[in-house]
Design a protein around this nucleic acid. Sequence first.
RNA 1: UGGGCGGUCGACUAAUGGUAGGUCAAGUGCCUUUGGAGCACUUUGUCCAGGUUCGAAUCCUGGCCGCCCAGCCA
Length: 570
Amino acid sequence: MAAAATPQADRPSNFIRDIILEDLKANKFAGRVHTRFPPEPNGYLHIGHAKSICLNFGLAAEFGGKTNLRFDDTNPEKEEQEYVDSIITDVRWLGFDWEDRLFYASDYFDQLHQWAVQLINAGKAYVCDLSAEEVRQYRGTLNEPGKESPYRNRSVEDNLELFAKMRAGKFPDGSRTLRAKIDMASPNLNMRDPVMYRILHAEHHRTGDKWCIYPMYDFAHGQSDSIEKVTHSICTLEFEDHRPLYNWFIQQLGIFPSQQIEFDRLNITYTLLSKRKLLQLVRDGHVRGWDDPRMPTLSGLRRRGYTPEAIRNFCAAIGASKTNGTIELAMLEHFLREDLNQRAPRVMAVLRPLRVVIDNYPEGQVEELEALNNPEDPSAGTRKVPFSRELYIEQDDFRETPPKKFFRLFPGQEVRLRAGYFIKCTSVVKDEKTDEVVEVHCTYDPATRSGNAPDGRKVKATIHWVSARHAIEAEVRLYESLFSKEDPNDVPESQEFTANLNPNSLETLTAAKLEPSLASAKPGDRYQFERLGYFCVDPDSTSEKLVFNRTVQLRDTWAKIEKREKGKSL
RNA sequence: UGGGCGGUCGACUAAUGGUAGGUCAAGUGCCUUUGGAGCACUUUGUCCAGGUUCGAAUCCUGGCCGCCCAGCCA
């Protein structure tokens, strides 16, 4: 039962949606919308793929259509089962379902081979003995037409026999190809007798050693779409030049005419979205793996603490067009914070501890103070946080001599401890050698329990804290962007993109202090460490020591002010 | 310099011959037991030049600028 097309009028449109709307109106595919997401299993999926996934699944869903997951596995030399598995995991994690429609281009190898024979019989394909180098020379250049291969006019019988021998493994790799007979003078280089099959004595991750000839992308993709009756075949801009060839094969074969539509690839500032380069980062050990939290891969983002919702909202917001552009990283982070703000439980953690002693608080006394789990979500309830005479606060929250507009603790200043008491700084203890403040002494006002002043007096800042005796220790990994340049590919000539790697992309803090409620945190759990940012538990955590990743910082107005004030005084 | 595709606020994206709007960023104020969140307000744009039209971001012509293509990769 084809669900009636129910386009949401209020939904921001894009040119692909407009095309579908028109096709529906014209009853072009009998009212069907069927898309596919066609990754090559030669690496892990990244956020650029998420854009394509959201587009393909989203568009089909909107119009009551279907989306297939199809692995484009025509190059056994680069493809691996590990990648297939990761891709399946990642698309599911993102929240999409292809039901029983999991396909592989390799499912169609027999059919593709048959079609190749059909084209040979029709005089539209020939076996060419030119070497790779010769093929390149015969192809011509951007400005000059190519030359026809001397093997172009072999008889159908010869071609059939030669192609059969290619398939039977009679020839070494690279010695021959099957080519389409189109037009060596075409201004579109893709039409200059493109290679359809190459000889590759390589083990395929699914078909094993059944084949020693493999179809090229151009001879597999359109037909795979066609076999699956895909109506709208959405791909990226660089395939625009391939569309005439895509259509040529479909037309010569007389098969279902899927329609290719190209959109712009995703680019994000400070981020590299190229599988080849990502693989290089992994292989050369610049990151710890495909799922390193600094990687823009879906597995990396997941480990970093991103939610599928945040990624989907981001993809919906950026839309799709045909203009080459670059989205600011801030946009992605906005959708991340927006989602996490609603759902992440608040908790107190001190990353760089500074000891605070409350001189007038009874020694040995412990109070259980009640704290809100999430001010954005009353249903999240409250929890108890232990308070005692000795605490840790953030080093950043204390200055012996406060700069302008610094509202936090300094000698003589009173601040509120979150969910605790008002405290006032009375003195500091310094390291004799370094002159560094190592301990801060304060007094507290017992009347301000849980943060309210009965006399109505105000305080300019609220800071977070952890009871020293009750704190649990953790490792916290702070991340910055992997690259320090907006465009990681912008390097002086003769240098590689790796020259733009940010040396500070990872900072590991080993002595962070957490409130005790975190003892039961499990890998993948996400929290807001109050006033700092969102953090999630890394799978490296052990029963002895928790490891947290900083997903993203909270917006930091103070940092902005401080930077501006510093700039002024220079 | 062949072919293909594009150029709308700082970024991304709408407006499909009829008021250039939204999101992010930036800024200002309010509010705040997170310098968070929220709320309100503000700044900034149709690549250029002609033409068609009552009316052009949109249609036409000519420029300019950018991206992609010379894998037996996808």
